[in-house]
């Protein structure tokens, strides 16, 4: 029996499909229609994020107290390791706030990436049961992390309020985190697609993010370090292009009183550029495989 389709029959069936407005079942929706569909599911995104937060802590005895405890403990551990034991403070004013600020901003992006890489693969059964725009899942993961970030920021406000005092400059945190969230959405979408088809990526990501952690100026001030090393001036401009460094720097500018002397060049424009590039690029990259999620 031949497996080659009969061309006459193919043409006839295609014509019949056309006549009755049938479309190929595995076709990808157009981008504008996809965006509209996504907007229609905004309720689902929020409910799903809430349900996930709930189920994440459902098994723990302290429940959602962990949402506050986890960043607090993280901050304490990093302060102990880098501030007290290794003594990386060298001359940075209000080092705990400097360090914890960097840590929280970094964790927001890191978790968006690592969780996002599993957004599709962990929900395969849901994807295979119901039809909905798949981008809702990585988006829900970002909403989840944003929620966690809000709690972390609350802790940071209390800490800085006690050490440096309250300042109207704090409002700059809002545009800063908006830009970072845009960047994170793009990263989550990108890694959601990669993680679906190359499942090894979730094993590799921890190494990538850890390298990124040490290169982003979380424990030390990049300008101070470079000045001490007598590095040529272009090095700082190169290092400032790192998106995480930019997001950390703009949040530190908003929160820390004496950060001005240590701040990096062009952090705001760099942060904004990365936000747009990542959001648009990541979204299109994710959408282009929309018809292939759920296979395998």
């Amino acid at each position: 029996m031949s497996t080659a389709a009969d061309p006459a029959r193919t043409a006839e069936l295609a014509a019949m499909a056309e006549r009755h407005g049938l479309s190929r079942s595995s076709a990808r929706p157009e981008l504008p229609g996809y965006l509209r569909e996504l907007w229609g599911r905004r309720q689902f995104i929020v409910s799903y994020a809430r349900a996930r937060t709930y189920s994440m802590y459902a098994g723990a005895r302290l429940g959602s107290v962990w949402q506050i405890l986890t960043p607090l403990l993280n901050a304490a551990v990093y302060y102990l390791a880098f501030g007290v034991l290794l003594g990386t403070k060298n001359g940075i004013p209000n080092y705990p706030a400097f360090l914890i600020c960097g840590m929280f901003v970094f964790t927001f992006t890191q978790r968006s990436m690592t969780e996002g890489s599993r957004a599709i693969s962990l929900n395969m059964s849901l994807i295979r049961t119901l039809h909905f725009p798949r981008a809702t899942l990585p988006l829900a993961y970002v909403v989840n992390e944003l929620n966690q970030m809000a709690v972390s920021m609350g802790i940071l406000f209390v800490l800085v309020g006690f050490t440096d005092g309250v300042s109207p400059r704090w409002f700059l945190v809002i545009p800063a985190l908006t830009l970072q969230t845009m960047f994170n959405i793009g990263m989550t979408m990108t890694f959601a697609r990669i993680g679906t088809f190359v499942s090894d990526i979730s094993q590799l990501l921890p190494f990538v993010t850890r390298t990124w952690l040490y290169a982003s100026g979380i424990f030390f001030s990049i300008p101070d370090k470079l000045a001490a090393l007598d590095a040529p001036p272009w090095v700082i401009h190169l290092l400032a292009l790192n998106p995480i460094t930019a997001y950390i720097d703009i949040v530190r500018r908003a929160l820390l009183d004496e950060h001005e002397q240590h701040q990096l060049p062009n952090a705001w424009p760099i942060a904004a550029a990365w936000a747009v590039i990542a959001l648009v690029g990541g979204f299109i990259y994710f959408w282009r495989a929309e018809d292939r999620y759920g296979r395998g």
Partner: peptide, 25 residues
């Protein structure tokens, strides 16, 4: 629409929904 045919085509009107025994929510 979850598995693409290697050759040939499937045309459908509207979005089909699949209910499977191993499809958990």
């Amino acid at each position: 629409g979850l598995l693409p045919p290697a050759s040939g085509a499937i045309y459908t009107g509207g979005r089909p929904s699949l209910l499977g025994v191993n499809a958990a929510m």
